[in-house]
Design a protein around this nucleic acid. Structure first.
Length: 686
RNA sequence: GGCGAGGUAGCUCAGAUGGUUAGAGCGCAGGAUUCAUAACCCUGAGGUCAGGGGUUCAACUCCCCUCCUCGCUACCA
């Protein structure tokens, strides 16, 4: 929407989850884009509240705490401080960085819940959940472990199996065990409060798919469409959980229950704004309730549903709040071709980066912006990092500023020389200079930061070209006045460059401001060719960027390869032995050697093959999830091992009458188990 | 399989509402230059715009089908 109708801005960046340090994916996903946007707005002189904070609730944190033998509060305290420091270190310029364990946030979130509750917005539903009788509490999905019904992994969680990636519900698990006591949990009834999202479907469809069809990003609209237009519509979502870590549900009869972390997290933006306003002694409400406030949520694509569907539904229902004008979600950043992963240590950690690349925050900011995953997943590679540093930041940007300053010191004693008569080259350069700020601004306002940044580089190129065309090192020999004119213009290009680069490269801009003794300048000054007054002294040139040598990035790649090796080593440990069983348990299994008669892909399935086998007791049909490992012709005619007395199970409309046994390698590859010589079909195995 | 997002020069990516010889940066090859961190500046070579149909005077851009990648979702008894 047009900015002219807005008098203030509330800009939010996704609350980072306080269970680990920050990495480059976090920066690229939402903190750098939001920071660029905010710095630009401030440069324009706009009123901005840029808020964020640590997301400290949720089960994952309680599990981590338990594992380390400390309290959840101790876990979040550790990461809250570390993340907060990383943001400061990288120049992410929040007005306020809060945390969801704060008092203000507890009050705000329960207040909002209470408001919806009193309006009768929640559906109260009782469901059966696993309960640990010894610990006396209901178990979150993640607190239940058991055997994955799909791959047999004994350590699958109640919500998903990390080995085969299936998403599960706790009742799917075989032999569920409580992670609290190790006991088998029992099913017990529990009551929860659900937000009936289906009621907002029409409103959301109109608001997102009609009103914002032209100004929201494609990937965001697509995700919303897939939720809003799904066959069975929006499902009611429980806004409460049985847990003791979080914000207590402020309703009678809700003892031992807390607000769902995704209910309370976005409200953290409001709480953070409140804290900031209170410190500043101003009213927070206009930032969330005035129609002339522009609210923008910067997030990663994993958060789209919460920020475009659930949170707006909550705000809308409350009635007093404004809705986001835009939710410019980024896609994901990969690292050297692989998905970034905290648990696999496949990441570039911000705190480590700064230790190894001190004072190079802007280089990372630059690379992550130039290659930001704005429209699709992108890959960060150290080679690209090096190349962008050396051939763009050093060779174009840094080099230009350095040339202008060095020449000025060489020929004019470090004082801005006087502007004389202008020729066509000068006039063209000044014209081009005037046009850049608007061009860059237009891209920023459309959330196209990589494009905006490329214009900033073009601006630096203009400076280099101007020097190459005018050749002041030649004119100095017989025309000092002309040389002065050239350098005056070149220095003013550099000064302008600092202003438009500031949102992207704040540390570098500050260095240039320091070199030129510039103060109090903003976007409104950009485009003028007389920012630097004649006669003022500028400081000696200091290099803005340094070349990065091959061995430096090679070391980084090696470091990553090392963690990959460590992971393989960790995975190389064979799965632990299952519980002891008796011979009788074993004897119940009827395993046979069978021969595959036919095999064909199951229509409409990626993973299933439909096999018919001769069991010696007749032909049986088996559906086997091996289509990604074997072609039908790899199996036909082969003898394999089969469990034949497994109860039939219908899949995709076909009864599967047993299970083909496979060996699974640690890399997930499957192998057939075959007798070493031909054996009669139906031979027993014991 | 369903839904969503992508598949454009060696690499990373741009290409509103369809319209002249499809663009940029990097890399590469020539040239020019020496103020500058051998950097800058100029020129050039590279693409049947995943593939196949269709609509149109005209399609990278619209429609249909197929293939590939990624995300969510279902199916590994």
């Amino acid at each position: 929407m047009e900015n002219s109708k807005f008098n203030r801005y509330t800009i939010t960046a996704a609350l980072p989850y306080a269970n680990g340090p920050l990495h480059i994916g976090h920066l690229a996903g939402c903190y750098i884009p939001s920071d660029i946007y905010v710095r630009y707005l401030r440069s324009l002189g706009k009123e901005v509240a840029y808020v964020c904070g640590s997301d400290e609730h949720g089960v994952a944190i309680t599990i981590k705490a338990k594992k380390e033998g400390i309290t959840p509060q101790e876990v979040v305290n550790r990461y809250h401080e570390q993340m907060k420091k990383s943001f400061v270190d990288f120049g992410i310029s929040f007005n306020h960085y809060s945390r969801t364990s704060s008092k203000v946030h507890h009050e705000t979130a329960s207040g909002l819940f209470r408001n919806l509750f009193e309006k009768g917005e929640f559906l109260e539903q009782s469901t059966e959940q696993y309960f640990d009788e010894e610990a006396g509490q209901f178990l979150a999905d993640r607190y239940i472990e058991g055997t994955c019904p799909k791959c047999g992994n004994e350590n699958a969680y109640g919500d998903q199996c990390e080995k085969c990636g299936s998403s599960l519900s706790p009742t799917d698990l075989i032999n569920p065990k409580s992670k609290l006591s190790g006991n088998t949990p029992v099913l017990k009834e529990t009551k929860h409060w659900f937000l009936d999202l289906a009621r907002y479907t029409d409103f959301l469809k109109n608001w997102i798919l009609v009103e914002h069809q032209n100004d929201w990003k494609n990937n965001v609209l697509g995700q919303c469409r897939s939720w809003l237009e799904a066959g069975d519509g929006l499902q009611a979502r429980s806004m409460t959980r049985d847990m003791d870590w979080g914000i207590p549900v402020p309703v009678e009869g809700a003892e031992g229950k807390v607000l769902y972390v995704w209910f309370d997290a976005p409200i953290g933006y409001i709480s953070s704004t409140k804290e900031w306003a209170a410190e500043k002694g101003i009213d927070w409400e206009p930032y969330w309730k005035s129609k002339d406030t522009k609210l923008v949520h910067f997030i990663g694509k994993d958060n789209i549903v919460f920020h475009c569907i659930i949170f707006p539904a909550i705000l809308k229902t409350h009635g007093e709040f404004i809705l986001p004008d835009n939710v410019p979600a980024n896609e994901f950043l990969n690292l050297e071709g692989d998905k970034i992963s905290t648990s696999r240590n496949w990441a570039v950690w911000l705190h480590e980066y700064l230790e190894e690349f001190p004072d190079k925050q802007d280089v990372l900011r630059y690379v992550l912006t130039a290659n930001a995953p704005e429209t699709k997943d992108n890959d960060f590679t150290w080679k690209d990092y090096q190349s962008r540093n050396n051939s763009e930041l050093v060779a174009i940007f840094g080099n230009f500023v350095n040339r202008a300053v060095v020449l000025t010191h060489k020929f004019f004693d470090g004082k801005v020389p006087q502007l004389g008569a202008l020729n066509d080259i000068d006039k063209d350069a000044i014209e081009t200079l005037k046009a850049f700020p608007d061009k860059i601004a237009a891209s920023i306002e459309r959330y196209r930061f990589r494009e905006a940044l490329s214009y900033v580089m073009d601006f630096a190129r203009l400076g280099n070209k101007y020097l190459a065309d005018t050749e002041p090192w030649k004119t100095i020999k017989d025309d000092k006045g002309r040389t002065g004119t050239i350098l005056n213009i070149a220095l003013n290009i550099a000064a302008n460059l600092a202003i438009v680069a500031e949102p992207f490269l704040p540390f570098t801009a500050a260095k240039i401001y320091g070199m030129f003794n510039m103060e109090g300048l903003g976007w409104k000054d950009a485009g003028n060719s007389d920012i630097l007054e004649t006669g003022i002294s500028i400081n000696p040139a200091a290099l803005l960027f340094d070349k990065i040598e091959d061995h430096v990035v090679e070391a980084q790649v090696n470091k990553l390869m090392e963690s990959k090796k460590q992971n393989e080593l960790a995975n190389a440990v064979a799965a632990p032995m299952k519980d002891m069983i008796t011979y009788d348990d074993f004897a119940k299994l009827d395993m046979r050697v069978v021969k595959v008669l036919s095999a064909e892909p199951m229509p409409k399935s990626k993973k299933l093959l439909r096999l018919t086998v001769e069991t010696g007791l007749g032909v049986k049909t088996v559906l086997s999830g091996v289509a990604e490992h074997f072609k039908p012709e790899d199996l036909i005619g082969k003898q394999v091992t089969m469990l034949i007395n497994l109860a039939p199970r219908k899949m995709m409309g076909v009864d599967s009458e047993g299970m083909i046994l496979m060996a699974e390698d640690r890399d997930g590859r499957l192998r057939l188990l075959q007798p070493n010589e031909h054996t009669g079909n139906g031979s027993t195995i014991s």
